[in-house]
Nucleic acid binder design. Structure first.
Lengths: 106, 106
DNA sequence: GGCGATATGTAGACTGGCGACATGTTGTCA
DNA sequence: TGACAACATGTCGCCAGTCTACATATCGCC
């Protein structure tokens, strides 16, 4: 699937997979792939900048750790992030319904 | 609704409203607004460039006319445009289902 | 030693939607 | 007559966000 069509919806997807528990970047990419049955295979150049953006806006917070000799930056949802996710879920539903209605793909 | 989330989906929406019969730019904007119950209110700076793009790629063809003293450029779907619309409807369905699945907004 | 998987990141290009602007006509209302 | 909304088309430059390609490093396996 063309991930470029995600434009503007990626943030919600990331927040959504982190909702179930803290994850580091690489694991987030895998979680998105798993949850979408392989349809979403996002490049690191897309995800890592998005994570820093989400941290900058206060929706995520990160913490470094080392697991089996590998450095990990683990992200978790903030309170603001939870609210943002709820808002964005609502916006997604509206967007989805509007586009489906216009396209006649209800 | 934030129309910026349209990114990449606008072409399909335009092709879809033109599918029912030739329309000029201004009427396309109105048709999108009507079909979406007011949710889609696109600025001319978005729609007109998109129409020229769609004509450049051969999905639309245009013709000038004059109605009640006003110049109109009326667009209609080409054969290629019909095929493109069918393809994009399929892509939309997939995109919609994937995002809904990940967000849990099924 | 090499390679694939794990892990993070940046730089620059490209695309597309948006706000602001520019232009002109028609119809309406005071 | 003059102002203003609606009709109608279009451009320009900005900006946000995604992608490609690159850079770096560890671990486990063969």
């Amino acid at each position: 699937m063309k991930a470029s069509s995600l434009h503007g919806h990626l943030d919600a997807l990331i927040l959504s997979v982190v909702e179930d528990g803290p994850l580091h970047g690489y694991a987030i990419i895998e979680a998105l792939r798993a949850r979408s049955d392989g349809a979403l295979d996002l490049p690191t150049g897309t995800v890592y900048p998005a994570l820093r953006r989400l941290e900058r806006t206060g929706h995520l917070r990160s913490e470094w750790s080392n697991v089996a000799g590998r450095d990990r930056r683990t992200y978790r949802l903030t309170t603001g992030g939870k609210q943002a996710l709820a808002t964005q879920r609502g916006e997604w539903r509206e967007f989805r319904d509007v586009v489906s209605a216009v396209l006649g793909t209800a």
